[in-house]
C-alpha cells in the first residue's frame, strides 16, 4: 500500500473541487473494494476524498412516480427500505444475494456501481493484466478463467463486472445522476458501464472527476413477476458465475412487457433488449423461454475454464423466466428469511 492523503468532503462541490485539486486521486465510499485494491497495490491513489458522509443518503419519491436512491445510502439500507421492498423487490433480492451483511452495511450504492472486476490476474500485480496495466497482456485468456466473460469480451480483456445489485438495476433501467467539474448530467444505466474493447482500463463512461449522486428508478418496478437467480460456488459470500434478473408483466399467460439482464457473464451488467422484444406478446411457456435463452447465448464464447457458463446461462435464463412467471424466488437460500 502506498501512502496517501485524505480529506472528508462537506458537500458535492467541495468533493469535486478537492479531487480535481489532486493528481492521482479517488473518491472513497464504503471502502469495501477500493481499500482492498490499495492493499494489493492495484490502486495507488495519492489522495482520497471521503464522500460517504455527503448528504446523498436519502431514498425518496420522485415527482414522476419513480424512486431516488441516494449514492451514499448503504446497500443494506437500500435493500431493506420499505419502498424498495414493495415497489422494486427484484432490487432487494439482488442486493441481498451479494457479499455479506457486514459488507452491505458499509458499501454504498455509488460504490456498488464503481466496484472493479474480481479477475484473479487483475488482483495479482505480479501477472500481466490490460485492465490494470494497459498493454501488458491478458493473463486470463489462456489462463484460469472460471469467473470470466462469455459475452461482449475483447482480445484485450475478458473480465466481468462482479455486482449483483447492478444486474437488477440493468433490468430496472434507472438513470444515474452524476456531478463533475463540468456540472451535472444524467446517464442511462445501460450506458454507464462499458464493454472492454481495446480500453479495458475503463469500466464505465464517467469522465475525470465525476461523482455519482443518485440512481433514479422509473416508476415501473415489476413487483409482481420478477426474480433474481444467482448461481455461485458457495451459497453466500461468493460472486456470481451466472446471475439472471427478470421482470415480467403478464396478461393472463401472455407476456406484455419484459426485462432480462445477466450478471457474471460480461464486462458490464448484460441487459438483452432483443430478448426482451422476443418475449413480448409471447405465451409464458417453456418453449418461449427456451427459444429466448438460446438467443441470448447464441453469440457467447467460452475461454476454456468458463465454457460451461454458456450452457449454465441458457438454463439459468429458462429457470429465471419460469420463476418470474410463477412469482417465485430462488429456493432455499438462507438470506430470504434474514430480514433483520
Amino acid at each position: 500500500m502506498y501512502p496517501f492523503t485524505y480529506s472528508r468532503a462537506t458537500d458535492v462541490a467541495d468533493a469535486v473541487r478537492d479531487k480535481a485539486g489532486h493528481g492521482a486521486s479517488a473518491y472513497l465510499g464504503g471502502g469495501t473494494n477500493l481499500i482492498d485494491l490499495m492493499k494489493y497495490n492495484v490502486e495507488q491513489p495519492a489522495h482520497l476524498v471521503n464522500v460517504a458522509k455527503l448528504p446523498l443518503s436519502k431514498i425518496e419519491d420522485l415527482p414522476d412516480g419513480g424512486l431516488r436512491l441516494g449514492a451514499t445510502a448503504t446497500n443494506a439500507d437500500t435493500a431493506w427500505n420499505e419502498q424498495v421492498k414493495q415497489r422494486y423487490p427484484m432490487l432487494n433480492q439482488a442486493i441481498l444475494a451479494g457479499a455479506s451483511p457486514q459488507l452491505r452495511n458499509a458499501a454504498t450504492n455509488g460504490g456498488n456501481l464503481m466496484q472493479r472486476t474480481r479477475c484473479y490476474y487483475f488482483y495479482d500485480i505480479e501477472t500481466p493484466c490490460n485492465k490494470r496495466e494497459p498493454g501488458s497482456g491478458c493473463s486470463a485468456i489462456g489462463g484460469y478463467n472460471r469467473i470470466h466473460a462469455i459475452l461482449g469480451a475483447s482480445e484485450a480483456c475478458i473480465a466481468t463486472h462482479p455486482s449483483d445489485m447492478c444486474v437488477a438495476l440493468a433490468a430496472l433501467a434507472p438513470t444515474v445522476r452524476v456531478s463533475g467539474p463540468n456540472g451535472e448530467r444524467s446517464i442511462a444505466f445501460e450506458d454507464f458501464h462499458r464493454l472492454p474493447g481495446e480500453l479495458p482500463q475503463y469500466d464505465n463512461t464517467l469522465t475525470e472527476g465525476e461523482l455519482v449522486l443518485s440512481l433514479d428508478l422509473p416508476e415501473k418496478g415489476f413487483a409482481k413477476n420478477f426474480t433474481y437467480l444467482k448461481l455461485r460456488d458457495r451459497h453466500s459470500y461468493a460472486f456470481a458465475l451466472v446471475s439472471v434478473a427478470v421482470g415480467l408483466e403478464l396478461d393472463g399467460d401472455t407476456i406484455t412487457d419484459a426485462r432480462l439482464a445477466l450478471g457474471g457473464v460480461a464486462h458490464k451488467p448484460w441487459r438483452d433488449k432483443s430478448a426482451e422484444e422476443m418475449l413480448k406478446g409471447q405465451p409464458a411457456t417453456a418453449e418461449t423461454f427456451g427459444r429466448v435463452a438460446a438467443h441470448v447465448v447464441a453469440n457467447a464464447v467460452g475461454q476454456g475454464s468458463n465454457d460451461f457458463k454458456i450452457e449454465l446461462a441458457r438454463r439459468a435464463i429458462v429457470r429465471a423466466l419460469q420463476q418470474a412467471t410463477e412469482g417465485k424466488q430462488q429456493a432455499s437460500d438462507a438470506f430470504l428469511n434474514s430480514n433483520p
Binding site: R118, Y120, Y121, T127, R234, H235, A238, D333
Partner: peptide, 16 residues
C-alpha cells in the same frame, strides 16, 4: 503460481 490466493476466491464453507 496459485491464482485464487485470497478468501474471496478460495472458497471455504460459510454458514449458508
Amino acid at each position: 503460481r496459485y491464482v485464487n490466493h485470497n478468501y474471496a476466491e478460495y472458497h471455504i464453507p460459510v454458514n449458508a
